[in-house]
Design a protein around this nucleic acid. Structure first.
Length: 293
DNA sequence: CCACTAACCTGTAGGC
DNA sequence: TGCCTACAGGTTAGTG
């Protein structure tokens, strides 16, 4: 499910209901997700209040009144949902899932305005995980991440530095979280199509000799930014069963230009190409062999 | 340091 | 209906 736009959609869905909520009780339905729950996780959360939410790359962050930070990664299939929660507007009332066997973490919350509710983490494949820190800066997962693609720290010149000398294909370079933080398999294909760049050329070929960015790298930075912004505006993409915490699905998948569109005509105006699927480092890449070069 | 593969785990879609 | 295979949004450990 979750690349940067989906994680941001989840954060925005949780934010109004968990900010200011007191954590009354935490239940762990197993001892591990991808990794064991950290030592003292339950005890650290119980009795604390969630003061704010955040996101870095694909990591969700919950800052607690105790000063500690709870980090959550959704892996491939992780999802949060609310239960026992009465929305003020009845149309947004969420019917709980019937399949609870992958409910791994349950937080019982009391919110000053919204009352009591449960926040439940469900994750079929258990590639997700949580962690806990005295200070956010202690997180090994956040260390070494590249710039947030929607911040000023991300631009073509900055990418040029990180692409310099890289023989890896563009696809792999953009998936590398140390280069840009938050892109995944879908949005890499989409961003490269927007910039008309083939996914299988070496990353270093877009850097000029002086180390300065080329026009094509400027286009790529634009492609990354615009696709992420549009996807967030659409509430993320829904493949399989992704829902945000309010039970709504995203709509961006209807706007994929190339992802999962093998054999369909290329949507670039005037282009007569047909979308092709190739496999790079074990994962599908979709692109147009005519307008991407 | 770089580049690539296998592995983690479960569910689902498609072929027969 | 059932059985089998391929594949799925991510990251890490291991190899060369």
């Amino acid at each position: 499910m979750p690349e940067l736009p989906e994680v941001e959609t989840v954060r925005r869905g949780l934010e109004p209901y968990v900010t200011g909520a007191h954590i009354d009780k935490v239940t762990l339905n197993r001892k591990d997700l991808r990794f064991p729950f950290p030592e003292g996780f339950k005890a650290a959360l119980e009795g604390a209040t969630i003061e704010s939410t955040g996101r870095r790359a694909k990591y969700l962050l919950f800052r607690l009144s105790t000063g500690k930070t709870w980090l959550s990664h959704l892996g491939m299939t992780g999802a949060y949902r609310f239960e026992d929660f009465k929305f003020k507007e009845p149309s947004r009332y969420y019917e709980p899932d019937e399949d609870r066997k992958h409910d791994h973490l349950v937080l019982e919350l009391t919110h000053p305005e919204h009352g009591s509710m449960k926040l439940i983490y469900n994750d079929a494949r258990r590639f997700g995980f949580v962690d806990l820190y005295e200070h956010e800066a202690d997180s090994p997962y956040l260390e070494g991440l590249g710039p947030e693609p929607l911040s000023n720290a991300f631009n073509a010149a900055e990418m040029a530095e990180r692409f310099a000398g890289k023989k890896a294909p563009m696809k792999a370079a953009l998936l590398d979280q140390r280069v840009v933080a938050g892109l995944g398999n879908i949005y890499v294909s989409e961003a490269l199509h927007r910039a008309h760049i083939r996914p299988d050329i070496e990353a270093r070929t877009l850097v000029l000799k002086s180390g300065k960015p080329s026009k094509r790298l400027e286009d790529l930075a634009d492609g990354v930014r615009t696709v992420l912004i549009e996807a967030i505006d659409a509430g993320g993409s829904t493949l399989r069963d992704f829902r945000n915490a309010e039970g709504n699905s995203g709509y961006f998948q209807h706007r994929f230009a190339v992802y999962d569109r093998e054999s369909e005509p290329c949507p670039t105006p005037g282009c007569r190409g047909v979308i092709k699927r190739i496999v790079q480092s074990g994962r599908s890449t979709f692109f147009c062999p005519v307008c991407q070069h």
